[in-house]
């Protein structure tokens, strides 16, 4: 992989805030100043991220931590509340309309639930062929083009006339992949793309994604809560916790030398085929509410190493080794002193 080129996607200080849903009366009351402002969910909180061409970046975190929201911002289907998205070095918001549309087309998304994301009333040929036709990726013989896409995703092209409900879960995920690839993207955001599938089908889809990456020089942002899958697939891993990136490193590095206490706890709990009759234990406490996240370091109520400073000061994400970044105050202490080896740290 070339590491000299510029990132294909770069996020600078991206935040996304949702105000929680209010009914019409509530909105009116707020507008008239009769009710207080609705609570705000800080789904993504000042995230910066660079993804190089050809990389597979795994994005990991507990549910509700903002992975999907970040993925949708990367894919250009959700606007950020603040911050900058750069596509091949250019601020997407500043691009002329035509170029912006092109950049968006080059980034496609694959979703967890292959059924919900496919229009049940459209035939496979329309699902896969519509976007390439509209965007003039292909001008003549759309049918032949669709067949080629289906074939590449491992589906028999004779299924073209069928509807989504006539397929199994794994086959539907292949349709989703064929649809995404039909517009000839460079970058795929896969959001829990194999989470709903049986292990054997999951293996087929993971193999397909690895093959396609090689054939088509694709770059992936692979969102998953399954650390085994992420470890299998990723070159680099990004760990999120309530809206923030807390650690980021090459895959081998993060699994062998996790730095952040949250990452250490997370990795200690990966179920593994070779570990028998384990004593399960877990990071104590509850996943914090994004409506009201803890002060300072979001992880401090659950962190075994928390210090007074942790509840007041947000730790910055900074480099602790080549390509390895972590956001924890422990790294500011005597640099020569190794991290207190959390019981979890040495497990991998």
């Amino acid at each position: 992989m070339s590491s000299v080129s510029e990132p294909i996607i770069e996020l600078r200080n991206i935040s996304k805030r949702f105000s929680s849903t209010q009914d019409v009366v509530g909105r009116l009351a707020t507008r008239l100043g009769l009710a207080k402002q609705p609570p705000v969910v800080h789904a993504v909180d000042e995230v910066s991220l660079r993804i190089m061409p050809g990389e597979v970046v795994g994005l990991v975190g507990e549910s509700g931590c903002g992975k999907s929201t970040l993925g949708r911002i990367v894919a250009g289907i959700l606007p950020a509340s603040s911050g900058t998205v750069l596509y091949r070095g250019k601020d997407v918001a500043q691009l002329p309309t035509r170029e912006r549309r092109r950049a968006k087309l080059k980034t496609q998304m694959i979703f967890q639930d292959p059924f919900a994301s496919l229009n049940p009333r459209m035939r496979v040929s329309e699902i896969v062929g519509e976007a390439p036709r509209v965007h003039r990726v292909v001008s003549n013989d759309v049918e032949a083009y669709v067949s080629e896409q289906l074939h590449r995703a491992g589906l028999d092209p004779s299924y073209r006339r069928r509807f989504p409900h006539q397929f199994s879960g794994g086959q539907r995920q292949r349709i989703g992949i064929a649809r995404a690839l039909a517009v000839q993207p460079e970058f795929l955001v896969c959001d829990e793309a194999v989470a709903a599938l049986d292990v054997s089908i999951q293996a087929q889809i993971l193999n397909l994604l690895l093959d396609l990456r090689e054939q088509l020089d694709l770059t992936y942002l692979f969102i998953s809560h399954d650390l085994g899958v992420v470890q299998h697939l990723s070159d680099r891993v990004v760990i999120m916790y309530t809206g923030r990136v807390v650690e980021e490193a090459p895959s081998g590095e993060i699994f062998s030398r996790p730095n952040h206490p949250y990452t250490q706890g997370l990795l200690a709990e990966i179920p593994r085929l070779d570990l028998r009759k384990r004593r399960f234990s877990a990071i104590k406490g509850e996943i914090p509410s994004p409506l009201n996240p803890p002060s300072g370091c979001h992880f401090h109520p659950r962190c075994p190493h928390a210090m007074p400073r942790c509840s007041v000061e947000r730790p910055v994400l900074r480099e602790i080794a080549a390509g390895h970044r972590s956001a924890c105050h422990l790294n500011d202490m005597d640099a020569a002193e190794p991290l207190p080896a959390g019981a979890a740290a040495g497990r991998a």
């Binding site: 087929q204 085994g228 470890q231 697939l233 699994f255 991998a348």
Partner: peptide, 14 residues
């Protein structure tokens, strides 16, 4: 078909 460390980035058994 279980993804794991020792088979990282290799094809899984299907």
């Amino acid at each position: 078909s279980v993804p794991s460390q020792n088979r990282a980035r290799k094809r899984l058994v299907q």
